[in-house]
Structure formats: structure tokens, C-alpha cells
């Protein structure tokens, strides 16, 4: 008798069940996203009927009078995110350049060479190891929970920048950005911490973008007698510009939705101010602060605010992903 047999009916059923269940779960994950969007929209509809688009331009939030508006939160969200983005981009792209263009490993190699250890079996691996370590350290920044950053912000960042901020206010108070003193929480400390939180995102995606620039372009630039920075500024950065831009947009999406650091540091004040030191509020922080104790009425309004946040972050994220896709297509051409 042969060992080989056609699959038993049990095996056939198991196979069918398996295929069906993967199919079902694939659908389920799509349905989940649709459900999330629909549910938030559905819950927001009553509040939308009541407050209409005036909700977005209103500036008061008062549960007693039933007057609701989120303009200060939208302003605070955009202000803090853009400020954080500015700081995070400068640092994140610097880190990416520092890691990809061989500054660290080249420098360490030169140092080792000075003491003739560059080919030592142990010391000789130092340049690569340090580069790896630095990359991991930057990634570690992303692993720390945001609530821990918030705690750190309250007890380290705010006390540290307060004297500087208040000095700036006193000396240059006529300048709108320094228009108020920093009494504690405020836009600047919140944005600083937010910048730290998005830095790893920018650094990681920018690093990929810079690494994707083919080496032959670097050679071409150096062969044309470009200095290192001429090569970076005229060739490497322009070639990877789309990818860098995608990194910035995705980081912007992260910043818009980040909650805890802002809820803890921004001051939760319903004001619109251009001052860096003024307390403010953001959409995510509004949700975090008001949801736990919200009455039935307020939940509807908060759902409306959540819908606005959802719409903004969704659009920004989709744009960011589309840009990155374009970037990888562009680079294929160069190769």
C-alpha cells in the first residue's frame, strides 16, 4: 500500500477554513478603519447639527452656557506642531546628515589613525560601532513613553527655560512672540518637548532618504571638485528632497495628534495668542482633559472636535505617505 494519499476531507476543510479566515480578517481590518471613522462621525452628527460650522470658528468652551468653539484649540494645535516641526526638522535632518555622510565614522577613524589603531581588531571597529550606537540612541528617544516626557517637561524643561523666557519678555516684550511672561506651562515648553518626540521620526525617515541617494552621485559631485558641503547642499539634499519632505509631513501628522506631552505642558487655556510663552490648548489635549468627566451633551461636542482632529491628521498622513511613494519612484530613475 502506498503512503501517498489524496488529502483527506478534514485537510481540505481545514485548508478552506484557513483561506476563509485570512480573507475574513483582512476584511475585518478594513472594516475596523471604516467603523472607526463612521462611529466618530456618527457620534458627532448631533453636535454638528446643533453647532454647525460655527463650532470651528467659536472661541469659548463653556459647559454651563452650552457654548462651544474650538478655534483656540485649532490655533494651539497648529502653532505648537509647526513650532515643534521647525525645531525637530533642524535637529532631525542634522542627525541624519551626520549619520549618513560619514562625519562620525570618518572623524573617529581619523582619530584612531592618529594613534595608529585604525586596523586594530578591536579599536578598528569603533567607527562603525559608534555610528550604530548613535543611531540606536536616537531611536531610543522614540521608545520613551510620551507621559514620561510630560513628567520630565514639568520638572526639568519648564524650570529651566522660565528664567530665560521671562528675561526675554522683560527685555523684548514689544515683540509679539515674547508678549507674555511664562508662568509655568505654555506653548514653548510644550513645543520643545514635542520637537524631541518627533525628532526620531524625522531622523529615521531622512536617514533612509539620504541613504537612498546612489553613491555614484556623491562620486560625481566630489569628482567635480565639490567640497563635502557643496556635495551635500547642491547634490545630496536636492536629490533626496522629496523623501525629506515626506519625513517632515509625516512628523507633522504625529505632532498634530500627540496628546500627553501637550496635555501636561501646554496649560490648557482657551486663549489665542501669538506669544511663545502664553498657555494654550490643543485639540488632543482638549479631548484628554474633558472626556473623563464629560456629560452626555459634552460627549457629542467632544466627538465633533475628535472628528476635526481625525480629518486633519488623516489628510496630513495621506499626503505624507503619497510624497514618500513619489520619492522612492524618483530615486529609481536616478539609479
Amino acid at each position: 500500500m502506498s503512503i501517498s494519499q489524496p488529502p483527506t476531507s478534514g485537510q481540505r476543510t481545514a485548508n478552506k477554513a484557513f483561506r476563509l479566515s485570512t480573507f475574513a480578517f483582512a476584511w475585518l481590518s478594513v472594516a475596523l478603519v471604516v467603523y472607526i471613522v463612521c462611529m466618530i462621525t456618527w457620534e458627532a452628527i448631533p453636535a454638528f447639527r446643533e453647532h454647525g460650522l460655527g463650532f470651528i470658528t467659536g472661541t469659548t468652551w463653556d459647559a454651563n452656557t452650552g457654548e462651544y468653539g474650538i478655534l483656540p484649540e485649532i490655533w494651539g494645535t497648529l502653532y505648537s506642531s509647526l513650532l515643534a516641526l521647525l525645531i525637530g526638522t533642524v535637529f532631525g535632518v542634522s542627525v541624519a546628515i551626520f549619520l549618513t555622510e560619514g562625519f562620525l565614522s570618518g572623524g573617529v577613524f581619523a582619530l584612531l589613525k592618529a594613534v595608529h589603531l585604525q586596523y586594530h581588531p578591536l579599536w578598528g571597529r569603533l567607527p562603525e560601532q559608534l555610528e550604530h550606537l548613535l543611531k540606536n540612541l536616537v531611536e531610543l528617544l522614540a521608545a520613551i513613553p510620551s507621559v514620561v516626557y510630560g513628567l520630565w517637561g514639568i520638572f526639568v524643561v519648564i524650570p529651566m527655560i522660565r528664567p530665560v523666557a521671562n528675561y526675554l519678555h522683560e527685555a523684548l516684550g514689544w515683540f509679539p512672540a515674547f508678549g507674555t511672561p511664562l508662568s509655568g506651562p505654555g506653548l514653548l515648553p510644550a513645543s520643545l518637548v514635542l520637537a524631541i518626540m518627533i525628532l526620531p521620526t524625522i531622523a529615521a525617515i531622512s536617514r533612509d532618504a539620504l541613504n537612498a541617494v546612489p553613491n555614484k552621485l556623491r562620486e560625481a559631485a566630489y569628482g567635480m571638485a565639490a567640497t563635502r558641503w557643496e556635495a551635500i547642499l547642491y547634490v545630496i539634499l536636492p536629490t533626496s528632497a522629496t523623501g525629506l519632505f515626506g519625513a517632515v509631513v509625516l512628523a507633522f501628522g504625529r505632532a498634530l495628534g500627540e496628546t500627553m506631552a501637550l496635555a501636561m505642558l501646554v496649560g490648557n487655556a482657551n486663549v489665542i495668542s501669538v506669544s511663545l510663552f502664553s498657555p494654550a490648548n490643543t485639540l488632543a489635549a482638549l479631548l484628554a482633559n474633558n472626556f473623563p468627566e464629560a456629560g452626555q451633551k459634552e460627549v457629542g461636542v467632544l466627538m465633533y472636535a475628535a472628528l476635526v482632529l481625525l480629518a486633519i491628521t488623516l489628510i496630513v498622513n495621506i499626503i505624507g505617505a503619497a510624497i514618500l511613494q513619489r520619492a522612492s519612484k524618483n530615486l529609481e530613475e536616478v539609479r
Binding site: 475596523l32 496628546t259 482632529l309 491628521t313
Partner: peptide, 20 residues
């Protein structure tokens, strides 16, 4: 959808679970 969820603000996950 996976990519959308990757960039999904965590607070909105809370909002969803609150409603659902």
C-alpha cells in the same frame, strides 16, 4: 488601512473605544 492606523493619533483610539 495599516498605514493609516500607523499614523493614527492615539487619543482617537481612545475616543473610538469610548464610543464603541
Amino acid at each position: 488601512c495599516g498605514k493609516v492606523l500607523t499614523g493614527f493619533p492615539s487619543i482617537l483610539a481612545g475616543v473610538f473605544a469610548y464610543g464603541a
